[in-house]
C-alpha cells in the first residue's frame, strides 16, 4: 500500500499568554512591569502514524485533544516544533472555510481571492466560477460586499470554493455543519461524491455514528498524544469506553 501521509515524532508547542494583550498601552504597561509571561503548552506530543492511499481516517478525541492542531500541521499551516511530516498529493484542507476572505470584497472578488489562497490559477477559477456560484446558491448576492453576508452565507461560499478541486487528500474538520439543513444535505452529498473517487480522507468529528459511517480507520487523541490508531470498530469501541 502506498503511504500518502506520514508523520514521524511530531511535537507541537505553543506559547500561551495568560491573558490577551492587544493594545499597545496595555502591552507597554505589562512590559514595564515585566508581566508578559508565556505558558508553554504542548498541543501534540510525539505523534507518529502513516495513512495509506484511499484510507478514510476518523480523528476522535475530546475538546482540546489536539485534533485541529494535528490537521493544521498536516495541512502545513503550522510547522511542527519537532519531527517531520511527509505528504504526497494535493490537499484540500477544509479546516476553517473562507480563510482569506476580505470583508470589503464582494462575493465574486472573494471567489478569486480565496481560490488564489488555495493555490489555484485565475484561469482555473474563471472556468469554475459559475459552478461555484451555482452550488453556493448566492447568485443574487454575488456582487454584494462580504460584510453584508450572514455567517451561513459566508460558510456556503467558502465550502463551494473549497470543494471545487479534485484533491488527493481531503481534510474535514467539523465542516459537515455548514449552512441550513438543506445546504447541509447537499454539502454532505458532495463530500461523499468526492470520497467515492478514492481520495484519502482525514475526518474530525464528535459524532461517532457519522465517523463509523464514513471511515474505515480511526485514531484517538488524548491531551496531544496518539493513544489509539487502527480499524474503525476496534478504535470506536475504545472511544466509547473512554467517554463513558
Amino acid at each position: 500500500m502506498e503511504e500518502i501521509i506520514k508523520l514521524e515524532h511530531v511535537n507541537m508547542q505553543f506559547n500561551l499568554s495568560r491573558e490577551k494583550v492587544d493594545s499597545v498601552k496595555e502591552y507597554f504597561i505589562k512590559f514595564v512591569k515585566k508581566d508578559l509571561k508565556y505558558d508553554q503548552f504542548m498541543a501534540l506530543k510525539d505523534v507518529s502514524f502513516s495513512v495509506n492511499k484511499g484510507d478514510r481516517v476518523g480523528v476522535l478525541g475530546l475538546n482540546g485533544a489536539g485534533k485541529s492542531t494535528l490537521m493544521k500541521v498536516i495541512a502545513g499551516v503550522f510547522k511542527p516544533t519537532e519531527g517531520t511530516v511527509y505528504k504526497n498529493g494535493v490537499i484540500a484542507p477544509m479546516i476553517e472555510l473562507g480563510a482569506g476572505f476580505d470583508k470589503q470584497y464582494t462575493g465574486a472578488e472573494n471567489i478569486f481571492l480565496y481560490g488564489a489562497v488555495l493555490g489555484h490559477s485565475r484561469k482555473f477559477m474563471e472556468e469554475k466560477f459559475d459552478e461555484i456560484v451555482e452550488f453556493s446558491e448566492l447568485k443574487e448576492f454575488i456582487d454584494v460586499p462580504l460584510k453584508n453576508y450572514s455567517s451561513g452565507m459566508r460558510a456556503r461560499l467558502g465550502f463551494s470554493i473549497a470543494t471545487v478541486v479534485k484533491p488527493d487528500i481531503l481534510i474535514l474538520d467539523e465542516v459537515l455543519s455548514v449552512g441550513d439543513a438543506k445546504f447541509r444535505k447537499k454539502s454532505e452529498k458532495k463530500l461523499v461524491d468526492m470520497m467515492d473517487t478514492g481520495v484519502t480522507v482525514l475526518f474530525v468529528s464528535h459524532n461517532l455514528d457519522q465517523v463509523k459511517r464514513i471511515c474505515n480507520k480511526a485514531m484517538i487523541l488524548e491531551k496531544g498524544s496518539l493513544v489509539a490508531y487502527g480499524d474503525i470498530e476496534e478504535v470506536s469501541n475504545k472511544y466509547k469506553e473512554m467517554i463513558e
Partner: peptide, 20 residues
C-alpha cells in the same frame, strides 16, 4: 510559481481596496 496568482490577487486587492 504556484502562488504567483495569489501574489497578483494581493496586489490587486491592495489597489482596489485603497480607494473603494
Amino acid at each position: 510559481r504556484q502562488y504567483s496568482n495569489l501574489f497578483v490577487e494581493l496586489v490587486r486587492k491592495g489597489i482596489k481596496l485603497k480607494y473603494r
